[in-house]
Amino acid sequence: MRWFRSGPARRQVQHDPGRRQELLLDVRQRFGAHAQGRFAEQADAIIALLQDDDGLAVAAAVLREFADSAHAEVAAEVADLHRRSWRGPAADRRNYRPLWQAAGAHLRWPLFGLPGGLHPYVQVTAAAAAIGMRAGRAVRVTAPEPVLVHLFEILDLTLTGWEFARVHVDTDAAALAERLIAAARDLRAAMGDPPPLPPPVREWMRRNVTIDVHDSVAQRIVGAFNPGKTMRESLLA
């Protein structure tokens, strides 16, 4: 029998599709804005559920669904603007920033309230963390290139919301951005020969903007976050 490999040391992976569906349903329904507990505590509970191979596959599915749903929401709004004779750029998943620079005042930031019930500060933060924590295994269990693309897409929309949609940057928002960057770093390292960094990441790396981070409960400033510096230190190492 011949064995074929694709990607970095890819191995035969056994999986249970039924368990993956049950796990995804549990993660979707038991956690989120409707559930009790702070977002950070809920994310930690989900991370504990996503430690095995099926959990990593579910984490990848969460990132894919969230990125796809966010794009669908933005694209629908942009299509509506075009029907009303707006002549700005399209919703380009490779780089959302030019669109938001041109039309931010007319767009609704899509990451809260997407169809499917996934919350950026709960399920998405947890999914990114799970992928990053077990990146060496994730490249064997999943197709890592799409996962990396989705991590960067969600990061782009997150930072775009901060810059152009007046999204409140609290500790939960900062944790999401940090988890996405860290997961992208670890996944790229595990891939060995990752694709080039996307345009919005390169643009942020050229900047040196420090953003105040507020406590998610007390609404006071508790720290600062510099996305460009964090990306340079994480993704250019």
Rank of each mutant, 00 (worst) to 15 (best):
Pro196Ser: 14
Pro196Ile: 13
Pro196Arg: 09
Pro196Gln: 10
Leu197Pro: 08
Pro198Tyr: 01
Pro198Asn: 02
Pro198Glu: 02
Pro198Gln: 04
Pro199Asn: 00
Pro200Ala: 11
Pro200Val: 09
Pro200Glu: 05
Val201His: 01
Val201Leu: 11
Val201Pro: 09
Arg202Ser: 09
Arg202Trp: 00
Glu203Lys: 05
Met205Ala: 02
Met205Phe: 01
Met205Asn: 01
Met205Arg: 04
Arg206Lys: 11
Arg206Phe: 00
Arg206Val: 02
Arg206Cys: 03
Arg207His: 12
Asn208Pro: 03
Asn208Ala: 14
Asn208Gln: 13
Asn208Ile: 01
Asn208Asp: 15
Asn208Met: 09
Val209Pro: 01
Val209His: 03
Val209Ala: 05
Val209Arg: 04
Thr210Val: 15
Thr210Ser: 13
Ile211Asp: 00
Asp212Thr: 10
Asp212Gly: 04
Asp212Ala: 15
Asp212His: 06
Val213Ala: 13
His214Met: 13
His214Pro: 01
His214Gln: 11
His214Leu: 15
Asp215Pro: 06
Asp215Ser: 14
Ser216His: 14
Ser216Val: 10
Val217Asp: 13
Val217Lys: 14
Val217Met: 12
Ala218Thr: 10
Ala218Phe: 12
Ala218Met: 12
Gln219Ala: 14
Gln219Ile: 00
Gln219Phe: 12
Gln219Asp: 15
Arg220Trp: 10
Ile221Tyr: 01
Val222Glu: 15
Val222Gly: 13
Val222Cys: 15
Val222Pro: 07
Gly223Trp: 05
Ala224Lys: 09
Ala224Arg: 13
Phe225Arg: 07
Phe225Asp: 05
Phe225Thr: 02
Asn226Lys: 00
Pro227Glu: 01
Pro227Arg: 06
Thr230Gly: 03
Thr230Met: 01
Met231Thr: 00
Met231Tyr: 05
Met231Gly: 03
Met231Ile: 06
Arg232Pro: 02
Arg232Gly: 00
Ser234Cys: 11
Ser234Pro: 06
Leu235Tyr: 05
Leu235Gln: 06
Leu235Ala: 08
Leu236Ala: 14
Leu236Pro: 00
